[in-house]
Amino acid sequence: MTLYFLKRLIGIVLILFVMSLLVFGITQIMPGNVATILAGQFADASTVAAIEQRLGLNDPAYLQYWRWFSGVVVGDFGQSLVMERPVLPLILEAFASSAILAGLAFVLVTVFGITLGVVAAVRENRFSDHAVSVFSYIGISVPEFFWGIVAILVFARYLGWLPSGGAGNLNDGVLAWVSHLVLPVITLTFTLIAHVSRLTRSSMIDTLRSQYVRNARAKGLPEGHVIRRHALRNALLPTITVLAIDVGWLMGNIVVVEAVFSYPGIGRLLLFAIERHDLPLIQAGILLIAAVYCFANLIADILYGYFNPKIRYGHAAS
């Protein structure tokens, strides 16, 4: 277990390092000279040169990388070029809003996705199974931004129950704050539930057909106990991995959903930065999102190892 944990921890450090290289490298080949953008279209050559000098844009790439990277390690992501403020607080503020969305959606996805998947597997080929199946088909067949738009249309425009976008302010009361979250969270949840429930179902069905479940039944244990104690735990092992992957999916969807609902989170900030070629902001945003995803995977790996005795005891296979 120690080794298993160590390997993953070191692996993540390495991956983040390679990622920083990749992110930095790609943003370097972005078109449009940063200095020109900053100085404005009509600035003269000397102004541009001065800016280049100030930002060290004429230094060799590795030096620029090193400057950037050594800052990142201590939490200094530089200045936003467009907003001319330090990147870190900007990003953190946006990230906090997004985390609320993502966190709520993740909890809902976990609870409902697993429940639906297990119910469908236990009642394989009966009505509830088919109902879940149809539901998940619809869920994964249409992109989340379309669901977002449909939700806005129905709940905000026609019914007028909920606001169509933006974030609520806690000063206006909890209800107003929550009401702004409902639609984005539902939209995020809907497509992911389908994913989780489908995979939980198939893994649960496999487990229910396994030799050891048959053996448990041969011992005369009540079916409920067989499902809960013998099948569920083994069937949910792959679901842990799936949930971690869905965190990545969630972080991707959040970009789109924030755009649909004009929600001031990290996704919108990132899109804004890309539009304006704000390099430090892009670099920090993507790196942060990737890092969160990495740590979600780390947690999943640890949980997986913990619930899997083969890893917990002895067999320290990769």
């Binding site: 039944r217 041969a218 005369g220 735990r233």
Partner: peptide, 24 residues
């Protein structure tokens, strides 16, 4: 029928490697 399984009639399957639950 279930109450008879295990209590009246016990059974051992062929493959010991897959017949025990790996996580219990």
């Amino acid at each position: 029928r279930r109450l008879l399984r295990g209590r009246a009639i016990g059974m051992v399957f062929q493959d010991p490697f897959t017949s025990l639950n790996p996580s219990l």
